Simulated assay, not measured.
Amino acid sequence: MTTTEIKNSAAPEIRNFQITFDCADPERVARFWCEVLGYVVPAPPEGFADWDAYKASLPADGPLAGFVCQDPTGVRPRMYFQRVPEGKAVKNRVHIDVRVGTGLVGEERLAALEAECVRLEALGATRGTLLLADEYNESCQNMQDVEGNEFCLD
């Protein structure tokens, strides 16, 4: 397509999307991210009072293969966690930045990052490297979730 053809073509339809994580324990990782982001676990399948009742209905050798967490307002993307047989072997190619210090600089930003880091460590996250501000970027805190997936507090 030429530049003119692109400019004259109809705008593409905006698509909804979800973020999918490979993991060993989908429910554990999903519930962690619910706490981090203020997301919720959706209602269990029809006919079940809660997720425990649903899990009890599954064969003993067939634990949940996936679990979801979603934004209660429906605005932010849904997150899907799927069980995979292999463990995490290398650094993520894509990661989530949890925006806790937006608009803050200097010591105020560091204090906000530290407070959130402490909260997330209590949920099972692991603290990584604190990257201090330079002439191009503000400070951010590298973290890992309960299964070692990297994310940043920034």
Rank of each mutant, 00 (worst) to 15 (best):
T20C: 12
D134L: 12
Y136D: 12
K91L: 07
G62C: 07
Q141E: 01
D52T: 12
Q18N: 13
G106E: 11
P45A: 05
P85R: 06
L132T: 12
R28Q: 11
K91R: 14
V90I: 10
V90S: 09
C152Y: 11
A43C: 00
D134T: 09
P26K: 10
A43R: 13
A112P: 02
E150K: 07
G74Y: 08
C34H: 04
R15P: 00
R127A: 07
G47Q: 08
L153A: 05
A89S: 14
I14P: 01
Q141A: 04
F21W: 10
M79R: 04
N149S: 13
Q141T: 02
A53Q: 10
M1W: 08
A10F: 05
E114N: 11
C152Q: 15
V36I: 14
N8P: 00
E107L: 12
G101D: 14
V40M: 09
D134R: 12
S9A: 15
F17Q: 00
C152H: 09
K7E: 13
V41F: 05
G128E: 12
E147G: 07
A115T: 05
L120F: 07
C117Y: 01
G106R: 13
E107K: 14
A56M: 02
L153N: 04
R93W: 03
V68T: 06
S9Y: 04
E108A: 15
P77W: 08
P44S: 08
R99W: 09
L64I: 09
F48A: 04
A60C: 00
A56E: 04
V105F: 11
V41D: 02
L110Q: 06
W51G: 07
L37V: 02
A125Y: 08
A49E: 15
D22R: 10
A10K: 07
K91N: 08
C34V: 03
R119C: 02
E13L: 15
P12W: 02
T20E: 10
D71G: 06
A56C: 03
R119L: 04
P72W: 06
E121Q: 06
D134E: 13
C69M: 08
T129P: 00
P59K: 14
I6G: 00
K91E: 11
R109I: 06
G74N: 05
L64V: 11
V98P: 02
R93S: 06
G128Q: 13
V41Q: 10
E121N: 00
T4F: 10
V40N: 02
D154V: 13
N8W: 00
S139E: 12
K55A: 13
L120W: 01
L104R: 15
I19S: 02
A53L: 04
V94Q: 08
